[in-house]
Design a protein around this nucleic acid. Structure first.
Length: 485
RNA sequence: GCCAGGGUAGCUCAGUGGUAGAGCAGCAUCUUCAUAAGGUGACGGUCGUGGGUCCGACCCCCACUCCUGGCACCA
């Protein structure tokens, strides 16, 4: 049986349309998945919708649309984005899916309950009626009022909720992370989590009253008056999507996750809460968590109020999916924050895609055509030396370095062609003709190697190149990446 | 406020106790197979500020300053 590799991307809120931050994460997950698939592993890439948050209900009410419809409409946009980006998700698990996700989450709850880790306690907090949300003191303005509803006093409300004994698992989690059994990448995030774990953990509330949850979300088993707190069920999408609670055989095959790909804002939920729930339930913990950064736009934070939220669909329409993928993977350090600017995007597009890769393909194709080069390469996914060099870099998620290495090969091939000058036309000289032929054949083979390695990063482009150089004859074709002006 | 990481050529970044590196942009030059593309070369930095250790620091220590992130029941 093949080795398996299970990757997840974080489950986004579906209370608004996706932005480029989502796109970045989808692409990173997709690269990892495609890479492992190329290694011949059984690969599964999953994401889904965090649909049980109260915010979704509120957003739907604001839009005047039934919650289910609201969520389904937004989900559609997320799915369209994955397709437009050329990302191959195997599963998109909806949080509102009762048949699978509710069943799975109730099972997780029951396992934690059986372990004695769930108990009832009354919770007291400041409740804003306008927002229908609890706030902590530091989330309020100087008058102790919420920013959305100034002038409105918050109510002290107390409510019985279920709590989870997070404190019980502190030592085990520290052990998992410090021994890299749960590997957190990069180190800065790992250190952050470990330093957070130096303080005593408090138990967390994992349910809400029906009234407060507006009867939305996963019902707590055995208590009709409560719904699960979103993070308890949301993280469990990683399990419910692969059969937990409804197809044990499938679940056995895929769990535990090999990598959770997430944004830096939610590392604690994944590195602390999630392993705690799993330990309590007696289930395996994920093997690693890869944490990426956030986007700034022209060096400013992305925000709706600034109006600088970038729509990934527009960029794809304008420049193509692979161009956007290239920007994400090459320009954004894979585990740190990155900036997006259209100026920089065009710069990179022209220098690397149009002048670099695209032009190289065009010149070699034309040389091969002019010299009637015949290719008898079978183009199997053979291992080449470039692939060997790229492999360890991809496995540590340093996509920008991997691409930089591949572009070194592009430049190297340009240099080789310049030095050998295989366009010289002294065709009367047979030995010259032969040497041209050899040089061009070498170049074609090198291009095929480059295209093979590009498969996980720029799948559409890799395919186009491999098709063009499939042989036996090679024809010149329109540019892969027309130069931008 | 506390903790962590960072401030190196116009831009994105790499770097080591011993006279500063790459890519991109700009400039010059060679070449024409190619998307006015490709090759080569030069130009370009008092390596955040001020001290200290050392024969010698961008790399070690101290102070300051600016940026980013984390500091839980917020998703």
């Amino acid at each position: 049986m093949n080795k398996k590799f299970y990757i997840t991307c974080a489950i986004p809120y579906v209370n608004a349309a996706p932005h480029i931050g989502h796109a970045l994460e989808f692409v990173q997950g997709d690269v990892i998945a495609r890479y492992h698939a190329l290694l011949g592993e059984d690969t599964l890439l999953l994401s889904g919708g965090d649909e049980n948050a109260l915010k979704n209900v509120q957003a739907a009410e604001k839009a005047g649309v039934p919650v289910h419809k609201f969520i389904d409409d937004n989900t559609k946009k997320f799915l369209e984005l994955t397709t437009a980006l050329g990302c191959r998700f195997d599963v998109w698990q909806k949080g509102s899916d009762q048949e699978h996700h509710f069943v799975a989450s109730q099972k997780l709850w029951q396992l934690c309950d059986k372990a004695g880790d769930i108990y009832k306690k009354s919770y007291e907090g400041l409740y804003c009626v306008g927002c229908e949300t609890f706030y902590t003191a530091d989330e309020l303005d100087e008058n102790g009022e919420c920013f959305e509803h100034p002038g409105k006093k918050l109510e002290k409300v107390s409510e019985e909720n279920y709590f989870f004994r997070l404190s019980k698992y502190q030592k085990q989690i520290i052990d998992l992370i410090s021994k890299d059994k749960l590997k957190i990448i990069p180190d800065t995030r790992r250190n952050e989590v470990l330093s957070f774990l130096k303080q005593p953990l408090q138990d967390i509330s994992i349910s809400r009253s029906n009234a407060r949850a507006k009867n939305w979300g996963v019902p707590v088993p055995g208590d009709d008056s409560q719904r699960m707190y979103v993070w308890f069920d949301a993280l469990n999408i990683y399990q419910s999507g692969i059969g937990f609670g409804w197809d044990e055989k499938q679940y056995e095959k895929w769990w535990p996750a090999d990598v959770h790909v997430i944004g830096k804002g939610i590392s604690r939920f994944h590195a602390v809460y999630w392993p705690a729930f799993l330990l309590s339930a007696g289930l395996a913990t994920p093997k690693s968590i890869f944490v990426h950064g956030y986007f700034t736009v022209n060096d400013q934070k992305m925000s709706k109020t600034l109006g600088n939220v970038i729509d990934p669909f527009e960029l794809i329409k304008k420049y193509g999916a692979d161009a956007l993928r290239y920007y994400f993977l090459r320009e954004i350090p894979s585990s740190a924050d990155g900036d997006f600017s259209e100026r920089r995007f065009k710069e990179l597009y022209n220098s690397d895609l149009a002048n670099g890769l695209g032009n190289l393909i065009a010149r070699v194709a034309k040389l091969a055509e002019n010299n009637n080069v015949l290719i008898k390469n079978d183009q199997s996914d053979e291992i080449n030396s470039l692939w060997n060099d790229v492999q360890p870099i991809v496995e540590s998620f340093r996509f920008n370095e991997a691409l930089s290495l591949i572009w070194g090969a592009v430049t190297g091939l340009d240099r080789y062609i310049n030095n050998e000058r295989p366009w010289q036309k002294e065709l009367s000289d047979d030995s010259k003709k032969l040497s041209n032929y050899v040089v061009i054949t070498n170049a074609v083979n090198q291009i095929i190697s480059i295209a093979q390695v590009l498969k996980p990063f720029l799948p559409e482009t890799a395919k186009k190149i491999l098709d063009q150089f499939k042989g036996p004859t090679i024809k010149s074709q329109p540019p892969l990446f027309p130069r931008l002006t």
